[in-house]
Each structure stands twice: as C-alpha cells, then as structure tokens.
Nucleic acid binder design. Sequence first.
DNA 1: CGAGCGATTGATCATAATCAAGCGATGTGG
DNA 2: CCACATCGCTTGATTATGATCAATCGCTCG
Lengths: 260, 260
Amino acid sequence: MNVIFQHRDQSFHGESGAEASPAVPARLQRLLGLAAAEYDDLLRLCENAIRQVGSRSIVADEGEPQSQAYLILDGWACRCRFVDTTRRQITALLLPGDFSNPELDLDPRLGIDHMVCSLTPLIYAAVDTDELTAMMGRSPGLVRALQMQRRREQSIQREWAVSLGRRNASERVAHLICELHRRLDCHPSVRSLTFDMPLLQADLADVVGLTPIHVNRMLQKLRALGLIRSSRNHITISDLAGLRRLACFDETYLRLAGSH
Amino acid sequence: MNVIFQHRDQSFHGESGAEASPAVPARLQRLLGLAAAEYDDLLRLCENAIRQVGSRSIVADEGEPQSQAYLILDGWACRCRFVDTTRRQITALLLPGDFSNPELDLDPRLGIDHMVCSLTPLIYAAVDTDELTAMMGRSPGLVRALQMQRRREQSIQREWAVSLGRRNASERVAHLICELHRRLDCHPSVRSLTFDMPLLQADLADVVGLTPIHVNRMLQKLRALGLIRSSRNHITISDLAGLRRLACFDETYLRLAGSH
DNA sequence: CGAGCGATTGATCATAATCAAGCGATGTGG
DNA sequence: CCACATCGCTTGATTATGATCAATCGCTCG
C-alpha cells in the first residue's frame, strides 16, 4: 500500500575472500540442514553472486525468466502482487535461508507471476539455476532441503488462505506472530520468546489483509490481553499458549524438522 | 460450513474392458496436453484404479501418506482446511484433469496437510505414485503436464490470497467466476460464455471467504449489473469485459497454453 | 529547529456477518 | 396422490467488524 521501490541490484562482492564472508552467516548451514561439505559446495556457488539492496527494492520482477534462484542471506523479502495501484497483497514472506525459487525443475524460461521485493535492507545470493541443478546431482541434502522448502511454502500459502478467509483480524495477527516465532526459531535473533520483527505495520497489513490502522489496534488488543509485548523492532510473546489458543494455531502445517 | 461427509472409496471398476470406458472421457487427453500414445499409457495406469464417490466424501484425509495420486475424471473436488469445527476454508478447487497431488518428487511418506473431498459426485483414478513416476521416465509429455499443473496451482493459490486479502465481496465472486470460466474453457460443459457450476452457494462462500448469504447477495448484484445470469447449476456471463473489469481480472496467472 | 516518517488516537462510515423467517423445488411415505 | 419434510436459495432487519478520514504524537535525521 505504501510501496516506494528503490534502486536495485547494487551488485556487491564481500570484501573477504574464499572464507565464509560475514555476509553469509554460518547459521544458514543449520537452517538448510546441509552437511558441512554440501554447505561449502553451496557457498562456493554463492561466493561471486552476493548482492545487497536497500529496503523496498525489487529483487525479481513479474515476468522475468527464472534463470537465477535467490537465496536470502540476511533481511526479509516478500512475494507480492497488486490488485491495482493502491492495493497490494503479500503472498509470502522470505526469511534468511529461504530460496525465492525452490521450483528448480520448472522451465526457467517461464517468467515468474509475481514480484519479489525486499522489506528490509537485504543480502542475498543470486545463484544460477543451472549450477544449482548441477549441484543437486551431487548433493542429496540440497535436494531434500529444496523439497522441504517447496512443501513448507505451499503449506504456509494454504494456511494463509485459511487466515485471510476465515480468521478475524486479531486471530490473523496472532496467527502470523505464532508462525514467525516458529519459523525464526533457529535464528539467532530469537531468544525463546523474543524475536526481531523488522516489518512496518503497513507491511504487516498487506500480509494479513487489513489496514495498517487496524493492525495497530489488533496489536494493542493482543498487548492488552497480556499475550505479547511489542516495540518498534521486536515482538515478545508473553503468553505463548494463550496466543496460540486465540489464533487456533496448529504448527503441523509448518512441517518443521521431526514433525513429518 | 455445512459439510456432512459421506461414505468413501466405493471402489468402482468400469464395466467396459480395455477400451476407454465412459468414465474416462477422451477430452482428458486434450486437458492434459498429452500425445495419443502417452495418453493410452496413462489410461492403462488408471484402468484398474477408477473410483466413484458421492458428493461430500473424503478422497484423501489429512495426514495420509501420498502413495497415490488422484486424477479427477469427472466432477469437482477441493482441498480444504478447518480453523475449527464451524469454519472451513477451501484452498483449491480440483476440476476434471487435475491431479490431487502433482508433487510427485516429494517423499510420499510425508502426509498431506489438508483434506481432499468431493463437492459433487466424483469419478477419479487413484494411481500409484511409483507407477506414475515410472511413467514420467518414458513420457516427457506427462512430466510437462505435471509441471504446468503444479505451477498453475501455485499461481492460483497466490491469486486467491490476493482476492481474500484485498478484493471486496463482489470482486471476489466476480473474480472466481472469471477464473472458472477460463479454467473450464476446454471442457464440453462450456459453450463460450455458459458453464456448469455445480457448487452450492455455501461451498462458494468457503472459497471466497464470505457467508453464503452474502455470496447470494453478490450474485444478485452481478446479475443486477447485467454481468451474469445464473441458475441452480449454470452460470452465463452476459458481459465478459465488464465482469473482468469489476474483478480486476488478469488471466496471465492461469498460465494457460500459449501464454508463457 | 523543522521535516518526514511511522505509530497512535478518535470519530464516522461502509461492508459484511448474524439472526430469523419465508419460499420453492424435490423427494418420500402414508 | 397428497402431506410433509428437507434442502438450498432468498429476503429483511439488525449488529459487528473493519475501513476511512483526519489529526496528533514521538522519534530520527539533516
């Protein structure tokens, strides 16, 4: 609703050489569930493809061929689509460790049907899909990681439809907070019940299909109920069970490790 | 919202022998875009796996392993999820020619995260995923058909999120009608601007995230605007351009043949 | 200090949900 | 064959939820 796109694709090569640059945090290995050797292999693919853009930049535009897969390294991005110039819907949140395009087996000449853009300053790797496909031949872990990611994204997509269609405003906001809390679980920014929440209320609104003003009021309501505390960049869950109960949150759809 | 599940899996073997039984309409070949030989191959896989169930039956339950792919032959089905016992959201409509499970490369032991159930009397083929995977090795057309279907389903899913989040009631109903009109395009039930619409208003409501009463009123509104005519089982689009304008409908997301 | 942005507040309005009947077609059993 | 029941669609009245409009506040930054 309040999108101002900025400069794009300021190509950026980490100053450091072959060793893992600070731009590629080691925790990605854990996020992706790769063995050490596989992770090194992936890092080599990323090495010369690291890019850095500001907030609200276009990472991939509608209709572009999918000849590259973008691996989010730091910051948050989203898939979004517009009904008209004034109405935006965010259809997916891409967090560190997520690929913008886990559908490697599709014809890369087919353009994507939506826009991927950054919601915060963003660091990502633009890996050539051919190279990634080649790596899949020698790395079963990567195959599995991409499969799980596709599967999880689809499942989240369905759950969002449930929220948008059948949950009320406070339930939607509460549900999203529960989801983010679980998805960010293995990130260092999460310490048990507190996590970084860099989105503006206007962005949140475009995720849950409400106006920013109403999102604000729902956050106040959740605070008043003693379920969360929130400041500009953080959310702290004060009563996890209560929050989940309000949202009718059932985490099985996230298909996290061990919950097959 | 008004779901009463009925008997399931009345296994049903067409009386006819090797030739295409009436239960497997020839038009599926066109729907799937397969060459004649490939289609015959697929028919052989389906031959002994044809099932028939009544309306509102469970085709696949939450948590079931995906060891079979269900190919819809006749009738409509849906994927659905419940927030609680009173709130249902339909997250996908499965029409003839659609597979319930185009994700063959995923681990079949992972259960599905939602329920697939019939919205009308339904005829489908329950094909073993191993056999289908084997067939993919010798049928590039099948590979392509499944890829396109996955891609289209994801894209529709995203567009539904846009509708649920950012379109108002009349736009949502209008948009769904536009989508169904295009998706059913090559079905014989579609004659230019008229098509079969076997869903109850209550089912429609669970697709577009409204109450059945409000769906009723929106249909009346579209009729009053001269955009559609509708009876119990049919919809006729009187003013396609007007309907699409109202819905902000842009068919590129459907990724139909030729619109790569 | 002033500008700008994002969060917040209050007042009002619009949209869609809810509640409660009634209607019309279909189907069944007496 | 008719009475009755059922189911899905339709209508009207009322309520509730969330959108809209219009300021104001507080912080950061130049």
